[in-house]
Amino acid sequence: MTALLSLENVSRAFGGLRAVDGVSFGIEAGEILGLIGPNGAGKTTLINVITGVHPANSGRVIYDGRDITRLKPHQIAKLGLSRTFQIVQPFPKMTVLENVAAGALFAGQSPSMAEASREAMEQLRFTGLASVADKPALSLTLAQRKRLEFAKGLAMKPRILMLDEVNAGLNEAEIDDALAMIRKVAEKGVAIVLIEHLLKVVISVSNRIVVLHHGQLIAEGEPSAVLRDPAVVEAYLGAKYAARYGGAS
């Protein structure tokens, strides 16, 4: 089976720092891929590379059989790759509805403003934000803003949706809601890339996990197997801990 999106030996450096270093992996339609790693491992940078915000210095990003390595962010967005931001980025003075409509109009398939508003309303209902549709985005709570990001991403009609820490700062009930939504979206055939700090969350929802450390891919595979990998344990907990417990499980 050919991957919907595949990274081929992708690298990105900032000055001397190699934030992403020779990473290769693929994603298939309908899959939920967990992207994990310690702080500063290069997870967000990798998303920035894929979406064209910080294009790769070397290597290729292939999407649907097409090389998108050098495309601009807005072109990539139109092709069906959407993302949310770790630090939420709404248009603060626009209404919630307008925020989502922007995604539908510019990246999605909505040809007109009216059509975009209809599409946006649908996504707001799906994410449970319909009641605040006419409020300015800056009046939302953090949990609502995270969901707004999610709704914006969905309105773009993506085939791949990259979620950067959508659960950070949420309580358990809110996380459960979010995971249910993510599963529903994946069932429709959208590939999900989930960047997540809480390992428990990643394991429960992902089909597959990719682990980054110092910009390099150190493990890839089925969740429970990856978490037993000594290299992953070492990356997260340090060498000493790995030597003591790594082989035991």
């Binding site: 979406t51 915000v53 601009k72 962010p73 807005h74 072109q75 967005a77 139109k78 959407s82 993302r83 931001f85 980025q89 709404p90 248009f91 603060p92 003075k93 626009m94 307008e98 922007a102 995604g103 109009l105 510019f106 990246a107 999605g108 403003m113 914006k152 773009m156």
Partner: peptide
């Protein structure tokens, strides 16, 4: 003001980077 252009310009005014990611050719 009523058009796609006006909407795009308002998005750019609010947050240009986010607008780009949403598919706005800023």
């Amino acid at each position: 003001h009523k058009s796609k252009l006006g909407f795009a310009l308002r998005c750019i005014q609010q947050n240009e980077d986010a607008a780009n990611i949403l598919g706005v050719n800023a």
